Simulated assay, not measured.
Amino acid sequence: MKNFMIKISLSLTLLFSIVIYSKTVYGEEISEKNFQVIAHRGDSGNAPEHTMVSYELARRLGADYIEIDLGMTKDGQLIAIHDSTVDRTTDGNGRVNSLTLSQIKELDTGSWFNQQFPNKANPQYIGLKIPTLEEIIDHYKDTINYYIEVKRPEDNPGMADELLQVLNSRHLIENNIPRGKVIIQSSDAESLKYIHSQYPNLPLIQLGSYTNRMDLPEISKYAIGVGPELTTVNKTFIEKAHSNGLIVHCWTVNNQADMEKMIDWGADGIFTNYVGLAVNVKLADRTAPVIPTIYTISNQSTSIMGTAESKSTVYAWVGNKMLGKAVASNEKYSIKISKQKAGALVSVYSVDAAGNKSGSKTGKVVDRTAPVTPTINIISDQSTYIAGKAELNSKVFAWV
């Protein structure tokens, strides 16, 4: 019985350790504040993917990580490229592993972007070169965080060893380097298990296109997290991954609604082609209710109406005086007020049930006492009168 209890205690300790290990990869508890924005091939929505221009744009926009897909040349050099061929992103053709580095360096990897996205074209993109992993690291050193993918190891024997050699020679996987400075991802579990056997403390992410094919307990033995494809992810999967001590970095998330959904569901980060948008979503105050709108208020109005989040309380003010309040229902509100002078500035804001306050919306009171400006029909040099439209019982004056 005593031995049984010891085994249970050890098992619980191990499980707790796994959860803490995954939760503190970045040196602090996972939360919306440290939600990771991973620049997918750099800021590839606005610049040619896997170029120094794309990486630099992502860095300046505030990406937490720069993602680098690895290819291996015929002469064993690691370069930044997604595809197995150079056809799509250069002016050349052929498989990456059948070309030498010198041959690849002759290719233009920027002009294709200008041709495909003329509204984002930039003359500086013409003639850009594919960088090697060493060139990228030598340029940035330890000033950025690297998210590196081991791609197609079956076509590139020795890729994992070459990657570890480069990282080791640049002092990026030493014990004194903060955990998470480099994260390695792959769809190939065997490559990740091999890397884990060589560097047990190096954070690894298991990629997968389908969440229902991910064996989370097994993955947790060698990786800190999973990288599922966006359309296969739901909140339940994220919670299940977390319960197995795994973080979730979802790919590829390119619109605001999906970014907000990932944060709301508790994902720990996203890969995105649009770093600036993702950083803005990440930094937005997601607890405050949406700012209410105001319909037109005239100096004859006896109420303020507009839209606001249902069940939030909307307050109306003019200067330092509160005009009234009302609870929004079906995303609409109506606050009874006394008539206000034309030109007065009325402001509204809302407070939700949790006490979170929105920003303010201001509207100017419109003068509705003056008659509508008369219209004039055509007047010719043969006319003996002026005709038009005006409010009934108003006097219309004509001048020349």
Score class of each variant (00 low, 15 high):
residue 358 S to A: 05
residue 285 D to V: 07
residue 314 V to Y: 01
residue 179 R to G: 05
residue 258 D to L: 06
residue 363 G to S: 14
residue 303 S to A: 14
residue 159 M to N: 06
residue 356 N to G: 00
residue 348 V to I: 10
residue 42 G to Y: 00
residue 195 I to L: 07
residue 291 I to T: 15
residue 212 N to L: 10
residue 370 A to K: 15
residue 121 A to T: 06
residue 63 A to V: 07
residue 112 W to C: 04
residue 135 E to D: 07
residue 327 V to F: 04
residue 96 V to I: 15
residue 120 K to E: 08
residue 71 G to I: 05
residue 197 S to P: 06
residue 78 L to V: 05
residue 117 F to Q: 11
residue 49 E to I: 03
residue 208 G to S: 12
residue 327 V to A: 04
residue 39 A to M: 07
residue 198 Q to L: 13
residue 384 T to C: 04
residue 354 A to R: 11
residue 112 W to I: 05
residue 267 A to I: 02
residue 333 Y to L: 03
residue 307 T to L: 10
residue 161 D to E: 15
residue 13 T to W: 10
residue 389 K to M: 13
residue 140 Y to T: 07
residue 139 H to W: 08
residue 11 S to I: 14
residue 124 Q to P: 05
residue 196 H to P: 04
residue 77 Q to E: 15
residue 179 R to K: 15
residue 304 I to R: 05
residue 51 T to F: 00
residue 119 N to E: 15
residue 15 L to R: 03
residue 222 Y to E: 07
residue 155 D to H: 13
residue 323 L to Y: 03
residue 384 T to R: 08
residue 150 V to H: 03
residue 240 K to E: 15
residue 297 I to P: 00
residue 206 Q to E: 13
residue 239 E to Y: 07
residue 195 I to F: 03
residue 183 I to E: 02
residue 372 V to M: 12
residue 272 T to Y: 00
residue 70 L to D: 01
residue 169 S to T: 12
residue 380 S to H: 09
residue 302 T to Q: 12
residue 394 S to P: 05
residue 117 F to G: 08
residue 101 L to M: 05
residue 297 I to K: 01
residue 273 N to P: 07
residue 154 E to G: 08
residue 263 I to S: 02
residue 23 K to I: 10
residue 4 F to Q: 12
residue 200 P to S: 08
residue 12 L to E: 09
residue 138 D to M: 08
residue 116 Q to K: 15
residue 14 L to Q: 09
residue 19 V to W: 12
residue 28 E to C: 10
residue 400 V to L: 14
residue 355 G to Y: 01
residue 255 N to C: 01
residue 391 E to N: 10
residue 271 F to S: 01
residue 253 V to R: 01
residue 346 V to P: 03
residue 381 D to K: 10
residue 362 T to Q: 14
residue 100 T to W: 03
residue 132 T to C: 04
residue 208 G to A: 08
residue 63 A to N: 03
residue 294 I to H: 00
residue 106 E to G: 12
residue 236 T to C: 03
residue 174 E to S: 14
residue 176 N to A: 09
residue 258 D to G: 01
residue 359 G to H: 05
residue 101 L to Y: 08
residue 271 F to T: 02
residue 4 F to N: 13
residue 373 T to V: 15
residue 70 L to V: 01
residue 60 R to L: 13
residue 72 M to L: 10
residue 369 T to P: 02
residue 212 N to A: 09
residue 5 M to W: 10
residue 10 L to Q: 14
residue 128 L to M: 11
residue 274 Y to W: 11
residue 329 S to V: 13
residue 379 I to K: 04
residue 174 E to T: 14
residue 281 V to K: 00
residue 209 S to P: 08
residue 192 L to T: 06
residue 84 S to N: 15
residue 279 V to K: 09
residue 368 R to V: 13
residue 277 L to T: 13
residue 133 L to T: 02
residue 297 I to R: 01
residue 348 V to A: 05
residue 74 K to F: 05
residue 133 L to A: 03
residue 266 G to M: 00
residue 265 W to Q: 07
residue 214 M to W: 00
residue 79 I to K: 01
residue 283 L to P: 00
residue 315 Y to N: 07
residue 48 P to V: 04
residue 33 K to T: 12
residue 383 S to A: 12
residue 154 E to M: 10
residue 234 N to Q: 05
residue 388 G to T: 08
residue 182 V to P: 03
residue 67 E to F: 04
residue 49 E to M: 03
residue 1 M to E: 10
residue 206 Q to R: 12
residue 343 G to C: 06
residue 72 M to R: 02
residue 294 I to G: 04
residue 137 I to A: 06
residue 338 S to L: 13
residue 230 L to M: 12
residue 98 S to A: 14
